[in-house]
Simulated assay, not measured.
Amino acid sequence: MKKDTKLVNAGRQAKWTKGVVNPPVFRASTVVFDSVAQMKEASVKRQQQELFYGRRGTPTTFAFADAMNEIEGGVGCYVYPCGTAAITSAILAFVKAGDHLLMVDSAYEPTRDFCTQTLSQFGVEVTFYDPMIGRDIKNLIQDNTKVVFVESPGSITMEVQDVPGICEVAHAQNPDITVILDNTWASPLHFQPFDYGVDVSVQAATKYVSGHSDIMLGTATANEKSWPVLREKSYLLGQCASPDDITLAMRGIRTLGVRLKQHEKNSLKIAKWLATRAEVETVLHPTLPSCPGHEYFKRDFVGGNGLFSFVLKKSNNQALTAFLDGMSHFKMGFSWGGFESLVLAYSGLNKARAESAFGYTTPVIRLHIGLEDIDDLIDDLERGFARLNSNL
């Protein structure tokens, strides 16, 4: 099936829908059995999408996991209460005390904090690496390296990594290394992780999969090698998600393709407009040559979305505050991937890096371009630049 057809049909097997269009919302904690034999049979099949206990999942969970597998190309999918839970559980599934993890230096802030504040307490050694390192990552792999974590594009600074190169080198050095990718930016549609050597792909389904800024959800899909470990360790960590949230995410899947097309169209127009502005030093949009790793984006991705950043040429606290305050359509807020436009400003990004300099010292503005009319969004930004300039 072509991807748009797959989005409509994914997870809608008759065993889940029971003859209706959408899989029903199936809530359960305790699953009851009529005989010892029935309970024993369920116990044997508890890892095979069979009802056993609510935390193992219900048909609502199983239908959504099947849909994510079909779209992203995995063998198995585990569902978590948020994207950070998916990231931390995926990492914990494959490391133990004494192991070594390679973490990309441009990672999502909570991922970075988990490494420095939690993994260190568990005796796991973490080395941060330059997101543009590519195949040279082989020089950082140690005998005890168990996980290589990639995030492409990177949070805020948007570097696109050479994911297939990193995977090939890591697995050549040690076939037991697990490569985990935060694939949230691309969504399940625009980068197919398992075609490029990734072992586990994480999604903050809170974002584009849901698309409406009203739920928290995470997923991790895995290849055949990694799925049994990911599944059982995630279960032992107590991870599970609400069937009501899962149902909303399943609804989001149906419109994911058309939403992403509009997000991408709007964001590219605004990115090109920003590139003409005198106030802008550079635009960090993966589809543009000005973004680090653009060549990998052209090679590996099949589309973009609404999230990108740009660097201001000059600013001060008063001017930056004036730019942000008074926006009509761009609201300040964390997360992204909903239908609405968002704006956030970041300063001092070089201080957050361990091994790789960002290259700019002036503030970075991250935009999420929503589904509003493009002219209204440009007018909003233009008025913001006027406020910025009048306060410099």
Rank of each mutant, 00 (worst) to 15 (best):
T206H: 08
Y346W: 08
E382P: 03
V169K: 11
E340Q: 12
L324H: 11
N144A: 14
A241T: 13
F62W: 05
F64G: 06
K314Y: 08
I270F: 05
V95Q: 02
Q117V: 10
W227D: 00
V21D: 13
S210W: 09
W336Y: 10
I91S: 03
P292A: 05
A220E: 04
G123P: 03
Y196A: 03
D375P: 02
F194D: 00
C240V: 15
T58D: 00
Y235A: 10
G76H: 14
G359E: 01
V32R: 05
S315C: 09
T282L: 07
E70P: 00
V25G: 09
T247V: 12
L371Y: 06
P110V: 11
V179H: 02
Q262I: 08
P193W: 03
N22D: 12
F334D: 04
L102H: 01
E279A: 08
V302I: 13
S328Y: 12
G57P: 09
L377R: 03
Q48G: 09
I177K: 13
I87P: 02
M1D: 11
E72Y: 12
W227L: 10
G154A: 05
L236T: 06
Y346A: 04
V280R: 06
G165Y: 05
E355T: 14
V25S: 03
A319I: 03
L181V: 07
T60I: 06
A170M: 04
L342Q: 07
D99N: 13
V8E: 12
V79H: 05
E281N: 09
A90F: 00
L92N: 12
R383C: 07
P289Q: 09
H368K: 10
P193F: 03
F33C: 00
W273L: 06
E372W: 00
K265Y: 11
N350E: 09
S35W: 00
D113G: 10
V280C: 04
E279H: 10
S234I: 04
A37S: 14
G333Y: 06
F308W: 03
V202P: 00
A354W: 15
M103T: 06
S290G: 03
L344N: 13
T255M: 03
K15A: 12
L349Y: 04
L51T: 04
M1S: 14
E281G: 01
T321S: 14
D136M: 02
D199T: 06
D4A: 12
V75E: 10
F334M: 11
L217T: 10
R251C: 10
L288F: 05
Q121W: 03
A205H: 04
L101M: 11
G19M: 05
I137N: 01
K225E: 09
S155M: 07
G384V: 02
G98E: 01
F330K: 02
F33K: 00
G306L: 03
P110D: 04
G57F: 10
T58F: 01
T178I: 14
D300P: 07
L268N: 06
F122K: 15
P24W: 00
T287S: 15
I253P: 01
D300E: 07
